[in-house]
Amino acid sequence: MLTDRARTDFERWVRAYSAELYRYAYWLCRDRFVAEDLVQETFSRAWQATQQLRDPHAVKSWLYTILRNEHARLYERKRFDIDEDHDLAELVDATAADPSDGIALRESLGRLSPGHLEPLLLQVVGGFSCAEIATMMKLTEGAVMTRLTRARMALRGHSSSRASVRAIR
């Protein structure tokens, strides 16, 4: 039997995290109706499993993990092959860039592979550290950093202030 305290906590979680979870879900599935279903299902599962939450300070990452699992279950996510050993120097020297607006940047976000988009979302939307993302995605911290680097490099083409960027010495 859940206590009033548990109900109050649950409502607080909904108020605090539903918006960012929705945005995270939206970028995972790119469908606003599916995104809302994912968030609804996430909170339903959280509500049913409240007593399993051991660390109250880990609510946010717990909710994100539930949502990730729900999304994976929904789409039976395939494993995406990602080349972690790509030469970073080559990437940093890339200069292709076109001035663009938010729409183009959103399109570029949508074109990122799920394996690169997801850590970026967890960092930008969720505010998680590389170590936390590594735990959630069951990766090494180094692999997360590499994926974040590559994601930003892919989006860098939409930065309008490229003039000042030069190649590494």
Partner: peptide, 26 residues
């Protein structure tokens, strides 16, 4: 400076509108 500018735009780009009444429905 360049990357921080990009980061700012990424942060804005991911802010898709949240459906009205989502919290209440949950």
């Amino acid at each position: 400076h360049h990357i921080r500018g990009l980061e700012s735009r990424i942060s804005e780009a991911v802010l898709v509108p949240v459906p009205e009444g989502l919290e209440e429905r949950i």
